[in-house]
Design a binder for these strands. Structure first.
Lengths: 220, 220
DNA sequence: GAAAGTCTGTTGTTATAACAACAAGGAGTG
DNA sequence: CACTCCTTGTTGTTATAACAACAGACTTTC
């Protein structure tokens, strides 16, 4: 894993990162497949970066049922939310889905200006904030797109954002049907059905992942 | 508004804040009821703190339908997500619901270590990160609690977290029925009905805002 | 180019949530 | 106390989403 390609170290050179890592007293640890990396209920002051392998984020309800909340891919930051809220116990468990190596950094050291007053430090903090803000934005958008009670409403909310982003009524979506259904928290087949109806109703046109919001609607 | 009571300035004394504000070149602006504070599509480098009044966060779809996403109360930070992602245009509009005054701070100045290397600065950055992380946690939890397709599943997910937090099967919830229904994105009356059924089924007991998850379930 | 696998769209049935309308129980006020 | 206002719980009806099962199109692989 090349750290300069990660969200957290973006904009920093290899040499600068090496110097930073020393300054941060970062440590690397390896985990075997199945091993718990961070456990629910624990308090962590460490931000993790997954260097290689794969981790899953899961959650247990009080009856012991486990549900998977997401995955951590190489280069991704995790646990930063808990590390940034002093004393907040984790509500999720992170465990290794494969043999995995993790870089841990103490958030206190990341935030405290180092004695060398190194200029890379400022960039690192800014990156950390950007990571947090990005995740925030994505979560807010998902909530917005799933706020409608109807499948059509959810699709329209999502398509509306896609069109805004693309600056055009025509856009590509980055999901296949199953992924889109999961994102909008609806059943795939029912969603496919609704897409057909919307096309029949003249609201949208689509082919594979290319969608078009019909202009006529803008003036209704 | 006493700034030392706000999330962003927590842990700082009045005098320290005054010195910080100068160092940050923060500015205060007033808005009349109905006036737009920050507009969708704009790029902002400013974090806002609402000092007095009330603001609403709203969103327009491409057909011009407006929906209210939330409110900003005195002392609350807003726009920090957009300010922290350089170049990210706002997807929401913030406008004054009453006559309102806002403190704006440039995020670049917040993050750049000031020439005086004032120690309050570090605390401020840490607070900003904490604000971001907190919001993040709340959003993640809401998504988790609304991920079930059934009302019962959503209630159980929420109650499970409440019980965990309380460290007890008995806990108070901070919402009335309508607010809980809104939070879980379900219809109030249907939810009330489901709560009754859950009580009949012996899963929970409740009275007003006091809830009890029945122990028997733990061993099923 | 046949076979297996994946993705997408379609249909019919069933479960369930939304909705509307109302009753009962406080809380607060004149 | 009578009054209104607000919250909560209940019921019946209707709309709609989930679910299951399958067909066709497209990929991938040998």
């Amino acid at each position: 894993m090349n750290l300069s390609n990660t969200q957290l170290f973006r904009g920093l050179e290899e040499a600068e990162i090496t110097s930073l890592l020393g300054c941060l007293n970062a440590t690397t640890r390896s985990f075997q497949k199945g091993e718990v990396i961070l456990s629910e209920g624990n308090i962590t002051e460490n931000i993790g970066i997954l260097l290689s392998g794969l981790a899953v984020i899961s959650c247990n309800d009080i009856w012991g049922n486990t549900s998977i909340l997401g995955h951590v891919a190489p280069g991704s930051v995790f646990a930063e939310v808990y590390a940034c809220i002093p004393g907040e116990p984790m509500l999720v468990t992170v465990s290794a889905a494969e043999d995995t190596s993790i870089l841990f950094m103490n958030v206190g050291r990341v935030l405290a200006t180092c004695t060398n007053a190194c200029p890379f430090h400022t960039r690192l903090v800014r990156n950390l904030l950007t990571v947090c803000a990005h995740r925030n934005l994505q979560l807010s958008q998902r909530i917005q797109h799933t706020s409608s009670k109807s499948i059509r409403g959810r699709l329209m909310s999502y398509f509306s954002e896609c069109a805004k982003r693309a600056g055009s009524n025509s856009f590509l979506i980055p999901y296949n049907r199953q992924q889109l259904a999961d994102y909008l928290n609806v059943d795939r087949s029912t969603m496919c059905n609704e897409l057909s109806k919307m096309q029949k109703d003249g609201i949208i046109e689509y082919s594979k992942n290319q969608f078009l919001l019909k202009d006529s609607l803008m003036f209704q």
